[in-house]
Amino acid sequence: MSGSRTARLLAYAGLAGYALVSLYPFLWMVSGAFKDRLEILRGGGLIPEAPTLATLTSTWSRLHFFDYFLNSLKVTGLTVAGVLVVYSLASYAFAVLDFPGRRALFWMFVSLLFVPGITMLLPVVVLEKHLGILGTHLGLVLPFVNGTAPLTVLLLTNSFRAVPGELRDAARCDGAGDLRIYLSVYLPLARPAHVTVAVLTAVPTWNEYLLSRVSLSDPSRYTLPIGLESLISSEVPRYNEVMAASLIIVLPVVALFLFLQRYFVNGLVGALKG
């Protein structure tokens, strides 16, 4: 028993140490966002000597971060909405309906999990150029929606399969069609899985840099990561403003996860069990 307790304590100590190492850069970013330029150049400790909101306010207003924020919100919102509508219906079909090639098509979607996204960058850019949407927000949303297909289909299909078939049979006896059954029976029961998918889609979309950097050339369409990159690549980067901009990018993601963490964990566990 004592050996098991010692092993548990060592595991907890290791996890605590890992948490501290992981949190330190985040804490330094928060600290730097409340320092002026001179103080951050001097270095110093984690706690600001003279905390100030001036860095955050100037970064938000002077560097057009409000416009970048709205652009990121637009791209992320449209991506999440597209994913939830398209792949929720597709997953219902994979889980419940019987049609030729269902199993092969499902595993084709899942197999795309093993295709590195970077390999699709050039074909996506060329295709968007021919379609005339390169450099637009639609040119970001469509690839983002498509890129989430494998994991989303896997999670939602498993979640729908966990719904007892007797509920569908009972709804059939009441005269409900497939769309009504999906909306009234399956969608409410799979709500935690949909919240999980929404979070897993929103976070990488909000933070996405590569396709946005390659695609967007008009500063009025920049998203937050591109705005941050423009700060870092300036001739004389103001590191306190870089920290403030990073905090502006991170806070919505942290707030989203804290608000939805209960649904996120339940949905992930339920989908994996299903």
Rank of each mutant, 00 (worst) to 15 (best):
A50S: 10
A50N: 13
L53Y: 12
L53F: 15
A54P: 00
T57G: 13
T57E: 14
S58F: 05
R62Q: 10
R62T: 14
H64V: 06
F65H: 03
F65W: 13
F66C: 08
D67S: 15
Y68I: 08
L70G: 02
N71C: 10
S72H: 06
V75Q: 00
T76H: 05
G77D: 02
L78C: 14
T79C: 11
A81L: 15
G82Y: 00
V83Q: 02
V83A: 02
V83S: 02
S88P: 02
A90R: 08
S91N: 01
Y92N: 06
F94P: 08
F94K: 00
V96I: 14
L97T: 08
L97W: 09
F99W: 15
R102L: 13
W107Q: 05
F109G: 01
V110N: 03
V110Y: 03
L112C: 13
L113G: 00
L113T: 02
P116K: 08
G117S: 13
T119M: 13
M120D: 04
L121Q: 07
V126P: 03
V126S: 06
K129H: 10
K129C: 05
G132A: 05
G132L: 05
L134G: 11
T136K: 06
H137M: 13
H137I: 07
L138N: 04
G139E: 03
V141L: 01
V145E: 04
V145K: 00
P150T: 09
P150H: 11
L151H: 07
L151D: 00
L155V: 12
L155H: 06
L156Y: 09
T157C: 01
N158P: 02
F160L: 10
R161D: 05
V163H: 07
P164Y: 07
G165M: 10
E166T: 13
D169W: 10
D169K: 09
A170C: 08
A171I: 08
D174N: 14
G175M: 04
A176N: 01
R180M: 14
I181S: 15
Y182R: 07
Y182K: 00
L183E: 12
L183Q: 13
L183D: 11
S184V: 12
P188S: 11
P188L: 11
L189T: 00
L189A: 07
R191W: 14
R191M: 07
R191T: 12
V195P: 02
T196F: 03
T196E: 00
A198V: 03
